[in-house]
């Protein structure tokens, strides 16, 4: 599904991402971990086209990604979430979800302006879909709440829901459970398991919560100082001496839990 080939990104002298190659197969859940500043989010920004690479290639679903602009990546079926929440705070939950389907609105400016049946039908159809999705997440009552009025964990959940509205082939989740209570984490974990259960959706996720990553992912990739130092099944990664060394100090304790 996603093939990253010899990808590098240098900021001046800093090699934030250095010759990184990996692959995410269809239906797979892959975790991208590493100490702070290892270049994980930079990799995400490169894949979602917010940064131009210094060198390398990324292929998604048979397309060379670097031919596309950031706003076109979603058309290919690749959707991301953001570390510090990419929802629009002064919009309702429903409007945020509808934005997830932005590319599926085909009515032109005139049918929107004159509220022609085509625009109305489309709006009604998408609203139905969004409400159905909210209902399945148990969030139906929140449809007209302003996003900024909701608790952090709920916002994170809604951001994933918005990504799902785009009917993606692959999700990039940037720290989906950071700063959450264990109850909220559990809710996100169940959601991710549910949406990937039919083997149609690939997921690449970053997180610092090791038990969450190890439990959920089929495969884990470890970045340190912009380079891949280990790759494999969760149990292998937990025993890998290079990984333990990279995490020594501040986060050694986290690995063990």
């Amino acid at each position: 599904m996603l093939k990253v080939n010899q990808l590098s990104k240098h900021f001046g002298g800093l090699k934030a991402v250095n010759d990184v190659s990996f692959e995410v197969r269809a239906g797979e859940i892959v975790g991208l971990i590493g100490p702070n500043g290892a270049g994980k989010t930079t990799v995400f920004n490169l894949i979602s086209r917010f940064l131009a690479p210094t060198s390398g290639q990324i292929e998604f679903d048979g397309h060379h990604l670097f031919k596309y602009r950031a706003s076109q990546v979603v058309h290919l079926g690749l959707v991301r979430t953001f570390q510090n929440i990419g929802l629009f705070p002064y919009m309702s939950v429903l409007d945020n979800l509808l934005l997830g389907q932005h590319r599926d609105f085909h009515a032109g400016i005139f049918s929107i302006a004159l509220n022609l049946p085509k625009a109305r039908r489309e709006e009604a159809l998408r609203t139905d879909e969004a409400l159905k999705l909210l209902g399945s997440l148990g969030l139906a009552t929140l449809q007209s709440s302003l996003v900024s009025s909701l608790p952090y964990g709920t916002q994170k959940l809604i951001e994933i829901a918005r990504a799902l509205m785009a009917k993606p082939k692959m999700l990039l989740l940037d720290e989906p459970v950071a700063g959450m209570t264990s109850f909220e984490k559990e809710r996100i974990r169940k959601l991710i398991q549910k949406i990937s259960a039919d083997g149609q959706l690939s997921i690449l996720l970053i997180d610092h919560d090791m038990s969450f990553v190890m439990e959920l992912c089929d495969r884990v990739i470890v970045l340190s100082f912009g380079q891949i130092i280990a790759e494999g099944a969760p149990e292998e990664i937990q025993k890998n001496p290079a990984v333990i060394e990279a995490y020594l100090g501040e986060e050694a304790a986290v690995v063990e839990t």
């Binding site: 979602s48 950031a70 706003s71 991301r80 990419g86 629009f88 919009m91 932005h102 918005r162 785009a166």
Partner: peptide, 10 residues
């Protein structure tokens, strides 16, 4: 409100 998130939504 958020140019980058907007672009990510297409």
């Amino acid at each position: 409100d958020k140019e980058i998130a907007a672009e990510a939504m297409g």
